[in-house]
Nucleic acid binder design. Structure first.
Lengths: 237, 237
DNA sequence: GAGTGGTCTAGACCACAGA
DNA sequence: CTGTGGTCTAGACCACTCT
């Protein structure tokens, strides 16, 4: 019954299946033993076999079809979790010092495009902040952000040198949805000046839009100097 | 018992918990009802309550601590699945035509750095390919790849205009591990020429390393013109 | 109809945290 | 000690696929 083992039975089954896939013995499209077969082979209950296969399906390693069976997934995709964190947390995690310079923090009237992006009427009040984040004194991010007052009325009263906009928003406007788009670009004149880089230096640009409940909370453009920032990730079968 | 509903009981519980978190009623750090409490409230068995909370924990919405309880997770991170797909598949999915131009495909001797990256001895045989991928005739990716012959001995016999390197490798060297790094950069002279862009045009560079079983299968540098490619993603609580 | 997965139950034993 | 989650069982009913 594999009870005394430190490793749970469903984990043992998952590992066993994973190994057969990783070794190439079972190729994409091949059938994986059914829950009934696993019950016999490992002397486990069906719920345990089900959990093992269900979790492998959630991880994308196998596909399951009711009535048909479980098969090795077409591994034509590498997928990994891309985590977008609060920049203060990210810098602090590296053991470095995060500082913020506030270039602008004021109320404005929404242009038609901005109004549409935030789901407001043209000319509605919006909060606008422009900050530069530095890691150990070196500028690493230029943040240009518009915030919907309905989602975070106290936004402009925040001391952004102590609480990052992301953190303020997360605490006051619970996040329900977000989308982002990452591109390569050249910095604007202002971005280059504030980041201390040449205008010809390529940058990563991340446009982000967050939704909180019924409101679009914020739209932001984050620019990172290409030589000082990268997005890394890993995938494990 | 919520049996006739089209929606499974554990999904109903998950939705209910999600709503309380999204609405801000339960804030990060707050306790989520225990499995026992959910059993009563929804008239479900403990296994069902357990599954609901376990899946929410896997999604990162709550954290669970044996003996202590379940709490709303600190939502200080936005995470979403970043999927890296075979470029042919990706272009085809958009309903566009994918074509490949082969600039180089030959056997070389590994430089010390390359040998180390591939886990080979200096001067060992390696396969080297350089391709340009186009979408509807427009170049969108410059692919410079080194392949470990031990992982894919037939690599150079592939017709890369029909089978992409990624696809060949996935079929012959089952993927067990991969890592990537995304940066902004300027193209090399050759990359700019082959992609048909100016040398000053910023590009996204993705360095990728794949492992198959005991071997490092391949290391590649993929360069995308910044104006023709972006990485987009979404997150839903 | 036989085989498959999708869901659910009512118990059970265990490890761990906190009072 | 009580309450919590972590795991597991031996059944059950259902919907679906394939033959």
């Amino acid at each position: 019954m594999a009870k005394d083992e430190a490793v749970p039975a469903y984990e043992q089954v998952k590992t066993w299946v994973r190994q057969h896939i990783a070794s190439g013995e079972w190729r994409p499209g091949d059938a994986v033993p059914s829950e009934a077969a696993l019950m016999e082979q490992f002397a486990i209950s069906r719920m345990t076999a089900n959990r093992a296969l269900r979790e492998l399906a959630a991880e994308g390693l196998v596909t399951r079809q009711q009535g048909s069976g479980t098969r090795v997934a077409q591994l034509h995709r590498i997928s990994s979790r891309l985590v977008i964190r609060d920049i203060h947390e990210e810098v602090a995690e590296r053991g470095h010092v995060h500082t913020t310079r506030v270039l602008l923090a004021e109320e404005e009237r929404a242009t038609p495009e901005l109004a549409q992006a935030l789901g407001l009427r043209k000319g509605a009040r919006v909060f606008h902040t422009v900050l530069v984040h530095a890691e150990n004194g070196v500028p690493i991010q230029h943040e240009d952000r518009y915030v919907n007052p309905a989602a975070a009325p106290d936004y402009l009263n925040t001391d952004f040198t102590r609480v990052s906009p992301t953190l303020h928003l997360l605490e006051h406007a619970p996040l329900t949805e977000a989308s982002y788009c990452i591109e390569a670009c050249l910095p604007t004149a202002e971005e280059a000046r504030e980041l201390g880089i040449r205008r010809s230096e390529p940058c990563l640009s991340m446009k982000r839009r967050t939704v909180s409940g019924a409101h679009v909370a914020s739209v932001a453009r984050l620019v990172y100097p290409g030589t000082r920032y990268s997005i890394a990730g890993q995938f494990q079968a």
